[in-house]
Amino acid sequence: MTKYSLETKLLVVHAYLNGVESLRDTAQKYNVSYTMLQKWVARSRESGTLAAQEGYTNYSLEFKMDVLNCIEKTGASIEEATLIYNIPSSSTVWTWKYLLETQGIDALKSKEKGRPSMKKESSKKQAVERSEEALLAEIERLRMENAYLKKLNALVQEERKSQSVKKRK
């Protein structure tokens, strides 16, 4: 889909509204899509020329629910709701409606952008989690492990000595 500048949109809409040509003729004259011109004209009539300004907007959960409740209560079409609430694309409202029907209201909440933080837990939090008793138990376990390894090493040394004495005879 071609993106049109704000100046182009305003020029074409004003040309249609102030001229005597049809929508189709105006669209061909300015080399824009007929359906896009229809939407621009409808939006211009509904909420003025500033409606042609489109940009990324992060809609709140409350706003999304207001739009969907308006469609439900008044029986307005999705296209009418996009005009009333000045939403640039009707596909946005279609998506909201689909998400609400299939996944529930939690799916309409805004998601956090970007990657999660890689920061490690603070040392204070770790210190609180490791109680004094846990630390003493770990020390005891390490002492037992150390003693076991010393005994094992002594046995291996003793066995090597006894094998070397047997070989000399």
Rank of each mutant, 00 (worst) to 15 (best):
M1R: 11
T2P: 06
S5Q: 01
L6D: 04
E7G: 04
T8R: 06
K9A: 03
H14E: 15
L17Y: 00
L17A: 01
G19Q: 03
L23P: 02
L23H: 11
R24E: 13
T26E: 11
A27M: 02
Y30R: 09
N31D: 15
Y34Q: 14
T35K: 07
L37F: 02
R43T: 09
S44Y: 15
Q53S: 06
G55W: 01
Y56T: 10
N58R: 03
Y59C: 03
S60P: 01
E62T: 00
F63H: 02
F63P: 05
D66R: 09
D66F: 00
C70V: 00
E79A: 11
A81N: 02
A81V: 03
T82P: 00
I84A: 06
T92H: 04
W94I: 15
W96N: 05
K97R: 14
E101T: 08
A107Q: 07
S110N: 15
E112I: 14
G114Y: 12
R115A: 12
R115W: 11
P116K: 15
M118A: 11
K119Q: 13
K120S: 11
K124S: 12
Q126E: 11
Q126S: 10
V128M: 10
E129K: 13
R130W: 14
A134K: 13
L135H: 04
L136C: 08
R141T: 11
R141S: 12
M144V: 08
A147T: 08
Y148F: 13
K151P: 01
K151S: 10
L152K: 13
E159H: 08
K161T: 01
Q163R: 14
S164F: 01
V165T: 10
R168E: 14
R168C: 10
